[in-house]
Structure formats: structure tokens, C-alpha cells
Design a protein around this nucleic acid. Structure first.
Lengths: 109, 109
DNA sequence: TACTATGGTAAGTATAAACTTACCGGAAGG
DNA sequence: CCTTCCGGTAAGTTTATACTTACCATAGTA
């Protein structure tokens, strides 16, 4: 069993709807835990636990301001996703090209 | 509770490690269900169920060849993810800009 | 020193979902 | 036909995890 890479943790974190909602709220700027939990249909501790997972995936970062913990998105996460996307896309394209060439060989026979 | 969008289904689908493994296998070209299941530590029906979810998310597509069902990645899914990424990035940037301007106003007071 | 905020964590529950075995129907070859 | 591949689906179990309440620590304030 291979260890979980950064991208794995990102996808695991974003795999939960509530966690995506939390992440989306942070898109508009830094928020405290209570501000995030406000208007959401889960309790504050639940939000706190989700924040922990998101932070573990490197999707968000914290800045401590007294007793308030201000959470915000970590732009590097977007970079990670984009790189994964590019790599995947390249792999798929080369596979398509290889398959096309294989078809071509069949035609020549 | 809003209905699940395409991106939601994509993230839900890619939220599972086994499903990511299946999707990664398809990157190298089209495969039958048995080929996908081969060498994996889950049973063939499990793979079949995962394929259903991936298909529901629009990540893969099927081409039926007799009794064999050949699965392959749906390139449009990559597009969906990329668009989501771009949109998210834009939103975050404007939020950053707004926050910066707010800071500026504070300084001017 | 209280008193009131903040938020993280532990323990337990409850729900979701991943997995297995067993079964079924369709396609190809004898 | 009969046999043998193929793969989807149902039923049930088991495991993971999202959630709640309760509790604790820290920071600011009267």
C-alpha cells in the first residue's frame, strides 16, 4: 500500500460535500471558525474537524490572531491540482496517440 | 440542499482511493472490466460498481465490443475540472484584492 | 481574579459506502 | 443446445467517517 501523496490527500479532502462547502466559504476571504460554521447545518466542532483535514491536505492555512484562528485558502493547493491535471492530460493524450498508431498498423497489414 | 453539480460528482467520485486507482489505469488506454480488476486487491464486482460511479460523474465512457465492455477516460471531465479550477482561482484572487484594498482603506484613516 | 470569548479534542453514535458472495442475462464458440 | 466467456446487479456485512455533546485550554477584559 503506497503512502498517500499530496494529490491523494487533496482529493480525499474534497471528496466530502461539507468540506467542499467549507472550502468554498474560504474562497471569499479569511474567516474564523465561528464565521465559517455560521449558517451551516453542522456544528462548530464538526467544522473544526473538517478544517483539520483540509489543512492536512494543504488546501488551507491558518493565521492566529489572539484567540481567533483565521483560516484561508492556500494558493499552492490550486497549483498542485493544476499540475496533476496537466500530467493526467498528457498521459491520456500519449495513450490516445499510441492507440491511434496501433490502429494504423492494423490497417497496413 | 442544492442538487449535485457535475463538479460535485467528479470530486465525490475521485474521493475514493480505489476509484482513483481505477481511473489511473484507464489513463493508459481502454480496458475491459477484468483487465482493470486484474492485479488489484478488490474483486471484479467492486470494480464494476466503481466504474458505475465514475461513469455517473462523466469521468469515463464505455464502448461495447461484443461481450466486452471497454472503458476509457472521458476527456470532457478534464475540461470540467480545469474550468472549476480557473473559476475558483479567479474568485480567490478577487477576494485577495478586495482584502488588500480594505487594508489600504484602514491605513488611510 | 473571575467572566466571557475563542477553538481544538475526546468519546460515542449513527449513517454512509465499500466490499464480498451469489446470482443472473447476454455474446461467442464447440 | 451446451459450455464458457463476459459483466452488471442484489443482498448482506463490515468498515470507515461524519456528526454530536461534553470537556478543556487559551486569550482578552472588567
Amino acid at each position: 500500500m503506497p503512502i498517500a501523496t499530496r494529490v491523494d490527500r487533496v482529493f480525499d479532502a474534497l471528496g466530502d460535500p461539507t468540506r467542499r462547502a467549507v472550502f468554498r466559504r474560504l474562497r471569499k476571504g479569511n474567516r474564523s471558525v465561528r464565521e465559517i460554521a455560521e449558517g451551516m447545518n453542522v456544528s462548530r466542532p464538526a467544522v473544526s474537524q473538517h478544517l483539520k483535514v483540509l489543512k492536512g491536505a494543504g488546501l488551507i492555512a491558518v493565521r492566529i490572531d489572539g484567540a481567533r484562528h483565521l483560516y484561508g485558502v492556500d494558493p499552492s493547493a490550486i497549483e498542485v491540482l493544476r499540475n496533476w491535471l496537466d500530467g493526467f492530460w498528457d498521459g491520456t493524450l500519449t495513450a490516445f496517440k499510441a492507440a491511434a498508431e496501433e490502429e494504423q498498423k492494423k490497417m497496413e497489414r
